[in-house]
Design a protein around this nucleic acid. Sequence first.
RNA 1: GUGGCUAUAGUUUAGUGGUAAAACUGCGGUUUGUGGUACCGCUAUCGAGAGUUCGAUUCUCUCUAGCCACCCCA
Length: 469
Amino acid sequence: MPKIEKKVKAKKVEAKKVVKVVKEKSAKEKESQPTDRSKKTYNLLRGMHDILPKDEKYWKPMYQSASDLASHFQFGRIETPILEETGLFVRSLGKGTDVVDKEMYAFEDKDGTKVCMRPELTAAAVRAYIMHGMFNMPQPVKMWYWGPMFRHDRPQAGRYRQFHQVGFETFGHADPSADAELILVAFDFYKDLGLPVEIHINSLGTPAERANYKVELVNYYRSKRSYLCEECRNRLVKNPMRLLDCKEERCQSVKEEAPQIINWLGTESKNHFMKVLEYLDELAIPYQLDSTLVRGLNYYTHTVFEVYASETEVGSQNALGGGGRYDLLVEEMGGRPTPAVGMALGLERSVLALKQYNEKNNREIKKVPNEAFVAQLGDEARRITLKIIDELRFGGVKIAYNLCKTSLKTQLELADNLKVPFAVIIGQKEVQDGTAIIRDMESGIQEIVDQKKLIPVLKRKLGKFDDKR
RNA sequence: GUGGCUAUAGUUUAGUGGUAAAACUGCGGUUUGUGGUACCGCUAUCGAGAGUUCGAUUCUCUCUAGCCACCCCA
């Protein structure tokens, strides 16, 4: 018995060797034959993602809602280039912010110009406002945008290197009503999508007020230095406002008693903030005062806010969007002093939150149902079918079809899967007679109609009126 | 940018030191003009590269990517 085993083993080994030799050969052949590169598949760059047709049901309503809101609240669409001069963002967002220091897709183009793929759009909107002399237009000037932004951050769920934002900016409107208007637009956007959200809001006052507060904050934290976590000791020097964001348990008690910026605002700033809140009360928008809300871009003054999904958590990336007032930025960028407010919403995160919310609540986004399936048999029929499909579009009947399939059986199966109420069948015979069969998918009753009468008959069966009447 | 976890068909998941199994999906078929079934077939260089080994998808290392936390933000 052992002999046999040995033999078998030996044979196996031999066989393996042969295989190996063959493999090696083919490997060498591969190297010498570059034709093999046709087999190479490509992957996405890190942090990049495709938005696939299956998610169209999320993206389309978002765009719909955004553009409806824009036209109702009188925002005009602006589209700016993805590539801008690097300096534009460095100057507007501010050195020392993570976005500028670490996350920009910045490089030199062929003639040595320092360019950068936009990490956000407010700066570009400000640039456009100044460049095109929009301060000579009737104020306020209200603009909205929709498109990809780029930040070279470490990817995570809900955090991509190319992501999409929809945003709204109002220039030349200093009144708190402008702040409230933008928060309302953000709120309505999610209302349209059916996602409950709440607003976190705070005021940063003027730079002077903030500076005073910072001094106070640092003084306070210095006195408690020994209780702080390591991270916070760093923040104390680098970015004191972030101290209030610490999640470390040992810092919580220190945080609770920390001075709040609201108390350091002047009466004017305070009034502005109070009025914004009054608007929100009036609009019945749920909000939370959040004295720790700071936001990472340097240009903000007065009102800042963020939007959170109320009942879902998108990992730690749960801020769906945010914005605030930036009264000094236009002047800083070389324009006339112009008050302004802006807001941007993250679309990938919104989709993520919406998916989670719908799953949790057994909700589904329904597509517009198809009203008929057009099935064809044979070349002749297929040719006519494409024409009929086109006519049905003008007739306003939502149809499904598959010219790829030849058997009627398969096509009816598809129609069945789509739960279409009617099938229109066109075969060789119907082509000759100039007719078509309408099949009621539920009862199986079929009716032969003239091709010319197809649209009105179908519409009547669907309970629609014919436009031509 | 820092730390941790993970990586098998289009998707979700089995599994083993001797080149892999299932479900769903997709495509094709069960005689060519009629559907919800049923049955059959096809579809994986087991993330990439290197090492250990007679032999690795399985062990080790590196890389890459995804996820989680931090950081930051959308």
